[in-house]
């Protein structure tokens, strides 16, 4: 499934969830399902600065593809980053770098967020592309 198709799938899932409560339960569920990172991996260089909650992001190369893992002390934040991980994990650096991640604006989740957290979402997307760029160049 392409990045665009995965994004479309998420938007379809959300379309069945009209209320804020269901949408948040969906995000919280995604946060719970995303495996926790080990404390060893949660070093300060993996921390995304500028988020009110702590967010760690790790990326490694595997057969020319980028494998992401992420964690947060906030389960809602972790659910949000899980959306990105689901879309970008296992893709090639080139596909990640050229991906249009504006689907997050269509999820209807962003307008419920405090500006700091909405900004954190942009930071996460930027950071994931940055790591893909580093892996692609290595």
């Amino acid at each position: 499934m392409s990045i665009a198709e995965k994004q479309q799938q998420i938007l379809e899932e959300l379309s069945f969830l009209p209320g804020w409560q269901e949408r948040y339960e969906y995000v919280i569920g995604l946060g719970r399902q995303l495996p926790a990172m080990s404390d060893k991996l949660k070093s300060s260089d993996k921390l995304i600065k500028g988020c009110q909650s702590q967010v760690w992001l790790d990326a490694r190369a595997e057969d020319g593809h980028v494998r992401f893992s992420a964690d947060s002390d906030s389960v809602i934040t972790k659910g949000m980053i899980a959306l990105f991980v689901r879309v970008l994990d296992g893709e090639s650096p080139d596909a990640i770098l050229s991906a249009d991640l504006s689907f997050i604006d269509q999820t209807g989740l962003k307008e419920h967020l405090a500006p700091t957290r909405a900004n954190a979402l942009n930071l996460m997307a930027t950071q994931m592309k940055q790591r893909a760029l580093e892996i692609g160049a290595a």
Partner: peptide, 20 residues
């Protein structure tokens, strides 16, 4: 429970508190 998650959800219910 992270205070930010709590604040985000109760804001959805119209309750304005401060978290952080």
């Amino acid at each position: 429970v992270h205070h930010y998650d709590l604040g985000t959800l109760i804001d959805q219910m119209g309750v304005a508190v401060r978290t952080g």
